[in-house]
């Protein structure tokens, strides 16, 4: 396969990965890594590096739009970035030393978990007051809704912080945004309202990924020839995805389709990891 053909295949695949990732909120990395490793026989290190770069591009692009609307809580983001960057640094360092088939198995497991999480019905009450710890770190905030400004309090700061170290480690280890884990930390543990937690999670993903990307870059995980079509494709796909989300609300069947694809990929990654082919 020549460079031009390979680049075109990766570009088209990444476009659809970005599109589906944006429509379902799972992110593009989940399809990119299996596509490159299982589909195109690219070494998993290069796949992780390229995916991580695309994660920075899409999250920065989306965060630029959200942050202006005033929903993102910059202080929560900044505070929890201490946890995610420490985690990302550890994850990237671990990735240098463990065998690749463990990475493949872990990837499959996180993939399956994220797919299930995207289906769990969410219910949440907004808390009027935060914990003393949240007061101390000025994490409580407010955000605009159609019915006026809503104030919210934040709970269990320590638990959320710990979960974020884990989310950061997974991100650094697997080259994904690990949005599903960040949302668990913020929604379920810290009780941050959904709109705030999803936009703030997105805001944090770029910084988290940058912390492990600097390690990957120096270790040669980021191959320019592979990263180029991945980052361009995923970003364009994510842009189209955000347009579709605004225009149509019939994303229900897409979500099912995506979950089926993701489940097959998860099983394949685990299987190939167990048999030592990845």
């Amino acid at each position: 396969m020549s460079v031009i053909v390979l680049t075109l295949i990766i570009l088209v695949g990444s476009y659809f990965a970005g599109l589906l990732g944006s429509l379902t909120g799972l992110g593009g990395g989940f399809i990119i890594i299996p596509l490159l490793t299982l589909g195109l026989n690219v070494d998993i290190h290069y796949a992780i590096g390229a995916s991580l770069i695309s994660v920075i591009a899409t999250s920065s692009g989306a965060a630029a739009a959200y942050v202006k609307e005033g929903i993102t809580n910059i202080r929560i983001g900044m505070f929890l970035e201490i946890a995610t960057t420490i985690g990302a640094f550890m994850g990237a360092t671990i990735a240098l030393h463990i065998q690749t088939h463990y990475i493949a198995i872990l990837f499959g497991m996180i993939l399956a978990f994220s797919a299930v999480m995207s289906f769990v019905k969410k219910k949440q009450e907004i808390l009027p007051e935060g914990s003393p710890m949240a007061d101390k770190f000025k994490l409580n905030g407010s955000y605009p809704t159609p019915d006026g400004v809503v104030k919210y309090g934040v709970r269990n700061v320590g638990g959320g912080f710990f979960m974020m170290v884990f989310a950061g480690t997974i991100s650094g280890l697997l080259g994904i945004g690990s949005g599903a884990l960040k949302v668990v930390a913020m929604d379920s543990i810290m009780r941050i309202p959904f709109k705030v937690s999803t936009t703030t999670s997105n805001f944090m993903i770029g910084v988290t990924a940058a912390a492990s990307a600097v390690v990957y870059l120096q270790r040669g995980y980021i191959d320019p020839a592979i990263s180029m079509p991945v980052v361009v494709g995923v970003l364009l796909g994510a842009l189209s995805g955000s347009k579709i989300l605004i225009n149509a609300r019939s994303a229900g069947w897409l979500r099912w389709l995506f979950t089926i694809i993701v489940s097959i990929l998860a099983i394949q990654m685990i299987y190939n990891g167990l048999t030592g082919r990845l």
Partner: peptide
């Protein structure tokens, strides 16, 4: 790519 990685750091 280095410019892209620098973007969140610049932020």
């Amino acid at each position: 790519i280095i410019l892209l990685i620098s973007t969140p750091v610049l932020r």
